[in-house]
């Protein structure tokens, strides 16, 4: 296991190095931040001064080298727009996004798995057909349209839930979170649901297929032959078996959730990194964009590692092969 983790960490460093180069080149090849940072009537002297202070006239290789040296010390430069350290700006916004994404993930599990079981254990019944039709809608309707509908129904017509912004936050175990206050919680509901809809549909499908593929297996019949109750067969034998593919797919999906959060955060004016990155791209705020991408890539690497570890915890056969 130690060797396994060590190898993964080395891989991670390599991936980060390559990503940093690609991102650096990509971002620096496009656009001129001076146009945004300076007023249109700025003098040549002003231009030269800003260029020098941002080291924009250094050779590209030197700029990259300086960037890496600084990045290794946790310094991704100052945001052109906020005039504060880029990392600080990102970490200020990241908790809101992570809160949104994890809430959707949890929603998709606690709603998707039971519905998937319901459909999977009653194939081709009205229950099954209804759930599956619902999941097709969850998949195929555009995310932003679903968001608008949620706002229409729950905020405009029913007036139950707020539609914009993050509510009051409080601190639980040293983490600032919306869960600490009722106002924060109700503000979280609509955006989290919006982000979760496609995931719920995905989890329903995975669960349903998993249940249908697992039920005819010999170990289910053997469990019945031992007099094990149907309830325990489903909640232990089948559940533990299908958790393996579900965890794998959700690990991969975590990334696409962060990506989709951009849309959701825009619709619901959620102050997370998704909204920040859209603004920063528009403003050509290079340090933020670069730091954002590297932070997200690091998160992906950590998530993948967590999924692999979970995987081996869930499947004893993999665990003994690894050791």
């Amino acid at each position: 296991m130690t060797v396994f983790i060590l190898r993964r960490v080395l891989q991670a460093i390599l991936v980060l190095a390559i990503t940093s180069l690609v991102v650096f080149l990509g971002v620096y090849a496009i656009g001129d931040p001076l146009e945004i940072l300076l007023p249109a009537d700025a003098s040549m002297a002003e231009r030269a001064q800003v260029t020098a202070s941002l080291h924009l006239d250094d050779p590209l290789a030197l700029q990259y080298w300086n960037f890496i040296v600084q990045a290794l010390q946790g310094n991704f430069g100052r945001s052109f727009v906020f005039n504060r350290p880029a990392l600080e700006v990102i970490f200020e916004r990241l908790p809101a996004t992570l809160e949104l994404v994890t809430t959707s993930l949890i929603l998709s599990l606690i709603i998707g798995i039971p519905l998937g079981f319901l459909a999977g254990t009653r194939p081709r019944t009205v229950t099954d057909e209804t759930i599956m039709t619902g999941s097709i809608l969850g998949f195929s309707l555009p995310n932003f349209w679903q968001g608008m509908m949620l706002i229409m129904i729950f905020s405009v017509w029913l007036g139950w839930l707020p539609s914009t912004g993050r509510g009051d936050t409080g601190t639980i175990l040293g983490v600032r979170t919306s869960y600490a206050t009722w106002d924060g919680f109700v503000h979280l509901l609509l955006p989290a649901t919006n982000l979760a809809l496609a995931q719920i549909a995905l989890v329903i499908r995975l669960t349903r297929t998993g249940v249908q593929e697992t039920m005819p297996l010999d170990f289910v019949k053997y469990a019945r032959a031992r007099g094990i109750s149907e309830r325990r067969i489903l909640s232990v034998h089948v559940f533990k078996t299908i958790l393996i593919p579900i965890v794998t797919v959700l690990g991969i999906e975590f990334g696409s959730l962060i990506a989709f959060a951009v849309v959701t955060e825009t619709i619901f004016a959620w102050p997370g990194v998704g909204k920040l990155i859209i603004d920063s791209i528009n403003m050509l705020d290079r340090p933020i964009v670069v730091a954002y991408i590297l932070v997200i890539v690091s998160m992906f690497i950590v998530i993948n590692l967590v999924v692999d570890v979970l995987y081996s915890l869930l499947d004893p056969r993999i665990r003994s092969r690894a050791s």
Binding site: A225, G227, K240, T241
Partner: peptide, 23 residues
């Protein structure tokens, strides 16, 4: 169900397939 595995037990051909691999 009360009789199965209790008063009447069954042994299958290949316990590799019949014992649940994740338990």
């Amino acid at each position: 169900r009360a009789l199965r595995g209790n008063r009447i037990a069954m042994i299958f051909q290949d316990p590799m397939m019949t014992l649940n691999p994740v338990l």
